[in-house]
Amino acid sequence: MPGPFTDTIETPRLVLEPLGVHHADEMADVLGDPRLHRYTGGEPLTPAELRARYERLVTGPSPYHQEQWLNWIARRRRDGRAVGTVQATVTPADGGPRASVAWVVGMPYQGFGFASEAAVALVDWLTAHGVREIVASVHPDNLASATVARRAGLRRTTRYAGDEAVWSNIRDGGY
């Protein structure tokens, strides 16, 4: 598994900076549109709720969980504006570490390829750090996220996690 991370990941248009509690107020604005929850459920968090969530994420799971929570804020290079987040939960598995990944881009920044660029960078970073299998759960009706998963090198499998299709970089009867 990757060691403790402090890496900033850079792409042509984005800088993925490790998540900090101080990002909560800024990200509450980016993630505040209820339409972002169309496929995932729930509703936007207030700045205080997001700060509490980020405190838990930055602290990480209890040591006995044998998993790592890796989270980044995606910023546009040209102006430093936060546009979204990417995350990975890395767990030990037979044959090498496994990561479950996710991404979200604020409504005003959708349609510009930021989610794909950030997800590709995340998958590349995880692969370079020895993660063998990478999966994402995508609601079957969320065509935009399916496109992001495909661009990140994932293929839809025949598996489901709840009502979401599992996408993976490992072939297992996917289509």
Rank of each mutant, 00 (worst) to 15 (best):
A146V: 07
V148N: 05
T127A: 10
L154T: 01
G111S: 11
H129M: 10
T147I: 05
T157S: 09
T157I: 01
T147D: 12
P140Q: 06
L143H: 06
A118Y: 10
A136N: 11
G153P: 01
W167N: 02
A165F: 08
T127K: 08
E117G: 14
R156S: 11
V135S: 04
T147C: 13
A115R: 04
I170R: 14
Y160K: 07
A118W: 08
I134M: 03
P140S: 09
R155G: 02
N142G: 06
S137F: 03
H129D: 09
S137L: 00
P140D: 07
G130Q: 08
G130D: 04
R155H: 07
D124Y: 03
T157N: 04
A152Y: 13
R171S: 02
L143Q: 06
P140G: 12
A121T: 14
R159V: 08
R155E: 03
N169L: 10
G111M: 06
G130T: 09
E164H: 15
A161W: 06
S137Q: 11
H139C: 05
E164Q: 08
D163S: 08
E164S: 10
H139R: 04
H139T: 00
D141Q: 13
T127S: 15
F114K: 01
L126T: 01
A121R: 12
Q110M: 13
V131N: 10
V148M: 11
S168V: 04
D163W: 06
R171Y: 14
V123E: 12
G111E: 11
S168I: 09
A161H: 03
W167F: 05
R150I: 08
G162N: 05
H129T: 02
D141I: 01
V148E: 05
E164A: 04
V123A: 15
L126V: 05
G153D: 03
A128D: 09
L122C: 12
V135Y: 01
G162Q: 07
V148K: 11
E164V: 01
E164Y: 14
I134R: 08
G153C: 06
D124S: 09
W167E: 02
V131D: 13
R171F: 03
G113M: 08
V123R: 13
G162Y: 14
R150D: 01
R155W: 02
S137M: 06
A136Q: 10
R156E: 11
L122N: 13
N169W: 10
A118N: 14
V123N: 07
A119Q: 14
D163V: 05
D163H: 15
I170H: 12
G153M: 04
L122T: 07
A121K: 15
V120E: 12
D141R: 04
L122S: 11
V138S: 10
S168Y: 09
A152P: 10
G113C: 14
R156C: 11
A118Q: 14
A165C: 09
A115C: 09
S137R: 10
L154A: 00
T127V: 15
V131R: 01
